[in-house]
Simulated assay, not measured.
Amino acid sequence: MSTAAKVTGGIAALLVAVPALLYAWTLLRPHEIHTRVDIDAPPSRVWEVLTDFAAYPEWNPFIERAEGRAEAGARLSNHLRVNGEIMVFGPTVLAASPGRELRWLGRFVMPGVVEGEHTFTIEDLGGGRSRLVQHEKFTGALVPFAGSTLDVVDEFNAMNAALKARAETMVR
């Protein structure tokens, strides 16, 4: 084997190995965001607000527009406002348990580059009260380089506050 072939083979091996190692690293140490808010409304009402995608432009400061169905296997089209910019992505719904959980997986470009698994969990606190927990787990080869792009805790908190206000003031 010639020196050029050895160098080319070595470079090719690195181009495969480095992203694979970065992806594996993020599986062990994902970038995670976790927020929560207590809401003076029952889980059924929180679910109703959360899954009424057509109404998002009226109240949601983070996911300004969402289209699709809240059912496992459905594809959504979400328009997010992050740092004044609109980002569109099409996650796939992994779970939709009315009054309990909505979970989806979004990918950038292709599997393994940047993946975000987003979970909304609704906990019944009793007495017509609920807790909404938002959790996002980012994995993928580019996650270590994404920096502040993935730091959307302020956006999660803004959405939580807006959802709380909407659920607590809905007329039934």
Results as ranks from 00 to 15, higher is better:
77 S>N: 04
53 F>H: 06
18 V>C: 01
20 A>C: 10
48 E>R: 13
64 E>A: 13
38 D>A: 13
64 E>L: 13
80 L>R: 04
88 V>H: 00
62 F>K: 04
10 G>E: 01
79 H>A: 05
68 G>Y: 03
91 P>Y: 06
52 D>L: 13
55 A>I: 03
4 A>S: 15
17 A>I: 14
29 R>A: 12
32 E>Y: 08
37 V>R: 13
44 S>L: 03
45 R>N: 02
86 I>R: 14
81 R>H: 09
28 L>G: 15
55 A>L: 10
36 R>K: 14
92 T>I: 12
19 P>L: 08
15 L>W: 00
74 A>H: 15
90 G>H: 15
35 T>K: 09
78 N>C: 05
68 G>R: 11
47 W>H: 02
84 G>T: 04
67 E>V: 05
88 V>C: 00
5 A>P: 02
4 A>D: 13
48 E>C: 02
74 A>S: 15
51 T>N: 07
80 L>C: 03
25 W>G: 06
28 L>R: 14
88 V>E: 09
6 K>D: 09
48 E>W: 05
63 I>Y: 07
23 Y>D: 07
45 R>P: 06
41 A>Q: 09
85 E>F: 06
33 I>H: 13
91 P>T: 11
90 G>M: 06
37 V>P: 04
15 L>Y: 00
68 G>W: 08
63 I>K: 00
30 P>C: 05
84 G>P: 02
31 H>Q: 07
30 P>A: 09
46 V>R: 02
77 S>Y: 00
20 A>Q: 05
81 R>N: 14
90 G>F: 02
6 K>C: 06
7 V>H: 12
57 P>C: 12
17 A>Q: 07
78 N>A: 03
46 V>P: 02
59 W>L: 08
27 L>G: 15
27 L>I: 13
79 H>Q: 11
14 L>I: 04
28 L>I: 06
9 G>Y: 04
67 E>G: 13
87 M>K: 14
